[in-house]
Design a protein around this nucleic acid. Sequence first.
DNA 1: ATGGAAGTTGACGCAGCGTCAAGGTCAAGC
DNA 2: GCTTGACCTTGACGCTGCGTCAACTTCCAT
Lengths: 257, 257
Amino acid sequence: MKTPPEHGRREWSIQEIARAAGTTSRTLRHYQAAGLLQPSRVGHNGYRYYDGACLLQLQRILLLRDLGLGLEEIGKVLQGRTGPAAALHTHLAVLLEERDRLERRIAAVRKTIDATERGGQLMPEEMFDGFDHTQYKEEVEQRWGREAYAKGDRWWRSLSTRERQDWLEHSRQLQNDWVDAAASGTAPDSNEAQELARRQFHWLAGANGGQEVGYGYFTGLGEMYVADPRFSANYGGEAGAGFVRDAMKIYADRHLA
Amino acid sequence: MKTPPEHGRREWSIQEIARAAGTTSRTLRHYQAAGLLQPSRVGHNGYRYYDGACLLQLQRILLLRDLGLGLEEIGKVLQGRTGPAAALHTHLAVLLEERDRLERRIAAVRKTIDATERGGQLMPEEMFDGFDHTQYKEEVEQRWGREAYAKGDRWWRSLSTRERQDWLEHSRQLQNDWVDAAASGTAPDSNEAQELARRQFHWLAGANGGQEVGYGYFTGLGEMYVADPRFSANYGGEAGAGFVRDAMKIYADRHLA
DNA sequence: ATGGAAGTTGACGCAGCGTCAAGGTCAAGC
DNA sequence: GCTTGACCTTGACGCTGCGTCAACTTCCAT
């Protein structure tokens, strides 16, 4: 009593529809497990067989998948709990946001490539195009926080030329004063050093574009001055940088803790 | 012999750097497991401690992660096996391709929304804007394959107005002939029916924009004519659609197997 | 001493299948 | 009737980058 292969066959094996629809048998089993597509018949041996209606359903699933919908959403649409248009509208919003993020990321990558190719270092030393940045390394340090990197850039570009010059001048002054203080043998907890730390703090707060400069961030920065030779060099070597770090730490303990 | 909390502390607990860098302790452990960031010291109790150099390293990792690089790539960059610029260039290419796919997907979703909102059905019945499509339903059927959906659309838009009219006329003729043949009681394997199947095949091949029309695709389409009432209606009900399907199947067996 | 905050390792979860692994079925050729 | 090879089954791990318990241990302050 076997079913002879008749002329107008109306069902196919799993591989056959898979190929017909341009997908794989694994995917079909997955869809079944997800409750999206049941075989029209299952043989006594467990083999799955699919008919035209299944193929139709499968095509719908694949169409929606191609548009990027998740299997769960697709399930809702298929069983009519959600209109296709509504689901797609929701999905479209997600896609648009995704695109925005991608665009921003692409821009960021491009800028970082630019910076590293010119500067040779991973962390951009040369974000300030129009200036002779070899003279102004310090400001770079301030943007090492990762959010600060992105936000700080917007902040910087929002400034006028005059404001930028002021800010750079300010930073140079600050660095010089640090070096002087370190060289003069002042203690990190002296009034002099603490005043410098205070200036450093407010200068940073201004540069962070509304981003709060917290205890961890401030002291962390101090540590990095010591850890990174490119920076410590600007502060008179490890010793000088250590002095800056200590002073900043004390300031943080007193005012930010 | 405990280490007293001295003035210039140079290391922090896992939570402290995590907060300072704007991430979580779990992430730090993950990076360690991934070989990206080792604590500067591990206490006898298993506690992890990190110093300034670690913080520096962490910032680099987070910067790259923000740009979308995978941890593996980041690892290569950090240990100098890949230049940052090179890695970012590669990554940029990926991002650009990703953006392309996203754009296409967005366009497709928009069109599908349009179509379903006007047509009410998920499968777009109205892809042919300028025409009185209520008269031309058949062509829609041909684009059910999912790649065909996207590619077929580009194909269609690449045609001139004249070519479109020809194609539509052709499709209408074909449908009428099918209906006539079915009504006249012709057998599916008759010369007449097989000639219609041949026309159907070539008409499809033309419509698929270079996409091959294989055995599975062709027979599957026939099955769908029967399974979907919207289509079978156009072929004189289930009986007529069954006739078309059978004829297509025989044609496929003879010429596409 | 004790309670609460913070640390540890271990392991599951997620999205959508790809990809073995180990074994049953089926049609065909000898 | 037996072997071969193609195709089928279920089961389970893998991938990405952590989030999120769970079950304990340690540290610090009262």
